[in-house]
Design a binder for these strands. Structure first.
Length: 595
RNA sequence: GCGCCUGUAGCUCAGUUGGAUAGAGCGCCAGCCUUCUAAGCUGGAUGCCGCAGGUUCGAAUCCUGCCAGGCGCGCCA
């Protein structure tokens, strides 16, 4: 290795990105010589859309024209004349269009780079882009008052994959689930459990309030509570804490954690809101805000524009607030209610303060769009406490069945649970379905479609690509006793344009994952998989009769076997990021050509 | 009334963070299996990138204003 140019981000990425940075360094040196006043300027080195344009398109001359008021094509010519390429990376450099530099690399450069997969195996795709920064992803955080529904599922998958992406991109990631086990809703649950319990045994009935949770699962909780020795004859006020504790932990354990397990999602910590209250952590957070001069006593104006219940009179009384308006919120937010109890927001402030004090400097929350009104105040308060908060607001899932919208409500007795979905469609298909669209797009989830096991479900296409690679490797071993191995000499045998294209696609994985992590956009990995596998299927079919992977030419066989092996590894790693299984064989679809 | 999200092919959606002639899947039509899995591949067309301005070498992408759809608004959680 010669002296590294400053632009060369050595060690952050392996594989194709290193090639790209080496290209960038060579062009940067030429720019410095050709146009001294433009030295150090930022420019792009990107694979162009059209293959004829080479391996990389460089826009340096176009960017330079601002500084060196000159024709970009002339500037491009000057850069080309100053290119110094002692390693002979470049095969061809052309000036094209308005002044792009189209660079084609020598093929053996790509051949050599593919060793990265051999070295890194199931770690190929990792990078150090995040530099070990401590990052917290909070997601799901479903209330422990009932089963999770399909919308929670979307948040669960998004959060899980975002956390995976960040880990692969070199961040140190914590995953947390915030349990809303305090406040009014849990008392509604406790009361519902008692009401249902009195229906199950011969005791005086406690009627179910209309505001109580109505779902069938409450009967199960009630039965479990009775089995554990709960006494439904005692008055509610005496046992409501016992009921609350029992019901929330039962639901967390047997409904929520079970679903997460079926989905293959793990958390580092389930953080209880109640412990914040019990341990007086709210006061500590509020005190911090006091010290920063960000609290005040204010009489808040009534909410504007909304239709309000005329019976509810607005209480004009001073409340302790956080001055979130100083950070762009449209009104200050109360920390305590008129009755002196802390607001839900106050607890959340304390929780985020806790995250920061544990050394997490980048906070990411994955929320449903129904929390949209909460974003500004939370960002404001985290900023006030010296942190940085990013919020992924995913649009809600419209559950459909046979073209008819399915209405979901947690209070209502009838809704489709995440459990039902997982049991009918399976974790892999459900994950891919949720990841197929950007999080900020509303998603119509057709329950019927998710259960289909055919082409309309893209998970099979993606998995089939992996299985096909496995089948080739299996056959090579069984019939020829050949296993894939890194053989730099044999790699020269890969000369077909489709083979070079596949190598490039494999090698872009680390950068793709780093970019997806940076932008918090998991769907990019799904599209990468689809496009890469399509390229492989095309290659496979085109040369099926002429240039097969396994042939009588040992050199070609060795090189192609390695290519297929490396591709399979890249696919498997990308699937691992998504939490989707990578099968080595696919069962034929049911009912297809059986006769 | 205010805030957030969205508007791209018949439908569902991408679009490499401002690059060259805007793409994919589904659906439709026509082809491709003696040989590594046809859950695959190849070909065929449809675009006022919601509308109107602005920024610049260059805009689906950025800024402004409209239009349309979705979600939200509280001392609830």
């Amino acid at each position: 290795m010669g002296p590294a140019a400053p632009a060369l981000r050595e060690g952050i990425f392996d594989g194709g990105v290193m090639v790209k940075e080496r290209v960038r360094a060579i062009v940067a040196a030429a720019v410095a010589k050709a146009v001294p006043e433009g030295a150090g300027i930022e420019f792009q080195v990107e694979p162009p859309k059209q293959a004829e344009h080479g391996d990389f398109a460089v826009n340096a001359a176009l960017v330079l024209q601002k500084i060196a008021k000159s024709n970009p094509r002339k500037l491009a010519q000057a850069i080309v004349e100053n290119l110094h390429d002692p390693e002979r990376l470049f095969e061809k450099v052309e000036i094209a269009g308005p002044g792009f530099l189209n660079i084609r690399l020598a093929r053996d450069v790509w051949h050599r780079e593919l060793e990265a997969v051999w070295r890194e195996r199931d770690r190929f795709g990792h990078s150090k882009a995040g530099a070990g920064r401590r990052t917290m992803v909070e997601f799901v955080s479903a209330n422990p008052t009932g089963p999770m529904h399909v919308g929670h599922g979307r948040g669960a998958v998004l959060g899980d994959v975002i956390a995976n992406l960040l880990e692969w991109a070199g961040y140190e990631v914590g995953r947390e689930f915030y349990i809303n086990d305090a406040g009014g809703q849990v008392w509604r649950l406790a009361h519902a459990v008692l009401a249902r319990a009195t229906e199950l045994v011969d005791v005086p009935r406690v009627p179910l309030d209309p505001e109580d949770y109505q779902g069938e699962y409450v009967r199960e909780v009630a039965q479990a509570w009775l089995d554990s020795g709960g006494d439904p004859k005692r008055p509610f006020e005496k046992i409501r804490e016992e009921l609350r504790a029992f019901a929330t932990s039962w639901i967390l354990e047997y409904l929520i954690k079970k679903d997460l397990q079926l989905f293959g999602i793990r958390f580092d910590k389930f953080f209880s809101e109640k412990t914040l209250h019990d341990e007086h952590r709210l006061e500590a957070a509020v005190k911090l805000l006091d010290e920063k001069g960000l609290t005040a006593w204010e009489v808040l104006p009534p909410p504007k524009g909304m239709e309000r219940d005329p019976d509810e009179e607005f209480v004009e009384k001073p409340l302790k607030v956080v001055k979130t308006t100083r950070f762009g919120d449209d009104r200050d937010r109360p920390l305590y209610k008129t009755n002196g109890e802390p607001t839900y927001f106050a607890a959340d402030v304390a929780y985020h303060f806790d995250k920061l004090s544990r050394g997490y400097t980048r906070l990411i929350n994955v929320w449903g769009a129904d929390h949209g009104g909460y974003v500004q105040r939370m960002k404001a308060v985290v900023q006030a406490m010296g942190g940085e908060l990013e919020i992924i607001l995913f649009q809600l899932v419209n559950l459909m069945k046979d073209g008819q919208p399915f209405r979901m409500s947690k209070r209502a007795a009838n809704f489709v649970t995440l459990r039902e979905l997982l049991e009918t469609a399976g974790s892999d298909a459900t994950r891919v379905f949720f990841l197929l669209r950007r999080g900020d797009m509303a998603l119509d989830f057709d329950v019927g479609l998710a259960q289909k096991r055919d082409n309309s479900n893209p998970v099979f296409y993606v998995q089939y690509g992996h299985a096909r690679c496995s089948a080739i490797l299996r056959k090579a071993l069984e019939e020829k006793g050949v296993e894939p191995r890194w053989d730099p000499e044999a790699m020269q045998a890969l000369q077909l344009p489709e083979e070079i294209e596949l190598i490039k696609r494999i090698l872009m994985l680390p950068e793709l994952i780093a970019n997806a992590a940076q932008s918090l956009e998991p769907h990019r990995v799904v599209f990468y998989l689809q496009e890469t596998i399509a390229a492989f299927h095309g290659y496979y079919t085109k040369y099926k009769k002429t240039e097969r992977v396994i042939s009588d030419d040992p050199r070609k066989t060795s090189a192609r076997l390695y290519l297929v092996w490396a591709l399979r590894q890249a696919l498997a790693n990308a699937l691992a990021v998504l939490g989707v299984s990578a099968p080595d064989r696919m069962e034929p679809p049911e009912g297809d050509e059986v006769a």
